[in-house]
């Protein structure tokens, strides 16, 4: 588990990337959300032994990351951090699915290893796409897009508050845990200690929420958050959506890798 400070740092980084101005940033967030969702669903729709046919899909996160100026190292690090659960479960496959499918040289390759590899590839692709989406769109814009796509307004407003006070509360929690660590002499805190720390944090949070609500009322809040930004779903967005989704469909139904593999096999003696 990463430390609170590093998580806070990470959050700030993401927010910083989202504030850049590139072709990808200028696209209507709705277009990016739709394409990313299509990407994830299509990647998930392959059967469990697919590995190679998934590879061409990497072009989507890579192309967007490059066009949006997202550093590759950052992306790689965060995908690697998020991967363990899927991989942990995936690693069980070789134990249960031991049928040997073919030999790579003298190494027998079982179906379990293939499906494990498939899980790893899926994880990298889907996690990468999600990270790229947020890093190049920004959380508030993703929220606005989801709202535009039918998410209830109350929920969108609430997520906006969550995002805004994330930074404040993570700092608050970091200060509390630092103070706790300084007085606990290097031992892991006991549940009772953590509980009272969390209880205090909760009460402070509650009071803050009450003050925020007062501040909103003072500015004529009547239960609705008006968003100022107006995105336009123009030709560029339509082209973006149609272009990527048709590429995904082609890659889904035509195994490009097989084509490439046979091509290579033909060229090589």
């Amino acid at each position: 588990m990463a430390s609170i400070d590093s998580i806070a740092e990470n959050l700030r980084h993401l927010d910083e990337f989202a504030r850049a101005d590139t072709v990808v940033h200028r696209l209507d967030p709705r277009a990016k959300v739709v394409v990313t969702l299509a990407f994830v669903v299509i990647v998930a729709s392959f059967d469990r032994y697919t590995v190679a046919a998934l590879m061409p899909f990497a072009v989507f996160p890579i192309a967007l990351a490059v066009l949006g100026g997202l550093p590759a190292g950052y992306l790689a690090k965060n995908v690697a951090l998020a991967i363990p659960f899927a991989l942990l479960i995936g690693l069980f496959n070789p134990f249960f699915d031991r049928e040997v499918v073919f030999h790579l040289g003298s190494l027998p390759v079982t179906a379990g290893w293939i499906s494990c590899a498939s899980i790893a590839v899926r994880a990298v692709l889907t996690l990468g796409a999600a990270l790229v989406l947020v890093a190049l769109t920004g959380f508030p814009a993703v929220c606005a897009a989801l709202e535009g796509l039918g998410m209830p307004r109350v929920f969108a407003a609430q997520m906006q508050f969550l995002h805004r006070y994330l930074f404040v509360l993570v700092d608050d929690a970091a200060r509390s845990t630092r103070a706790l660590a300084l007085r606990s002499g290097g031992n892991a805190p006991r549940p009772t200690t953590v509980a009272s720390l969390l209880g205090l944090l909760l009460l402070r949070t509650w009071q803050r929420a009450e003050r925020i609500h007062l501040a909103m009322l003072a500015r004529a809040y009547q239960g609705e958050l008006h968003s100022r930004e107006t995105w336009r779903f123009a030709a560029a967005e339509v082209a973006f959506v149609i272009g990527w989704v048709s590429l995904f469909c082609i890659l889904r139904y035509y195994d490009l890798t097989r084509l490439l593999g046979t091509l290579v096999a033909r060229v090589l003696p």
């Binding site: 995002h163 509360l169 953590v194 609500h213 909103m216």
Partner: peptide, 24 residues
Amino acid sequence: DERKVPLMGVLGAFLFAAQMINFS
């Protein structure tokens, strides 16, 4: 009342922060 919306948002942030604090 609409007061719950900021409250829920901020408590969400609390939950997020609270999940970073581990206990043995």
